[in-house]
């Protein structure tokens, strides 16, 4: 198991707690919780062999479409593919930002 921690710049917007996915083969669990920090703290537990650069790439790609809110995000990955990871991350952000999205 590999563990990583990324600190990313974030927007100061209110969020709801969110939990999506599960730690089953080829899937992952993503939890978003409130944080008193101004940044997005992302903690990753992964069963996959791939390292830090792969996760950083996934996060950087995500940020292009979805600027991150200030939060604590925990990822429990059970060897999901990048496509599944992206979908779960978007699903979690959508839940966390449901209030903001409904105003748009």
């Amino acid at each position: 198991m590999n563990t990583f921690h990324f600190t990313r710049p974030a927007r100061n917007v209110p969020i709801d707690r969110a939990l999506v996915g599960y730690v089953g083969s080829g899937d992952l669990e993503v939890m978003i919780d409130n944080s008193d920090q101004p940044q997005a703290d992302i903690y990753i537990h992964s069963s996959a062999e791939q390292g830090e650069q792969r996760w950083l790439s996934i996060i950087e790609r995500l940020e292009v479409a979805h600027p991150l809110p200030a939060m604590r995000m925990d990822i429990h990955d059970f060897s999901a593919t990048p496509g599944v990871i992206r979908l779960r991350l978007e699903q979690a952000l959508e839940q966390a930002l449901a209030k903001e999205l409904s105003y748009e």
Partner: peptide, 20 residues
């Protein structure tokens, strides 16, 4: 709840990804 983060530290000690 999962947000209480009560996970199995035995799994982590054996290199297995926990669930919240």
């Amino acid at each position: 709840t999962p947000f209480d983060r009560v996970t199995s530290h035995w799994l982590e000690m054996q290199g297995i990804v926990p669930q919240f």
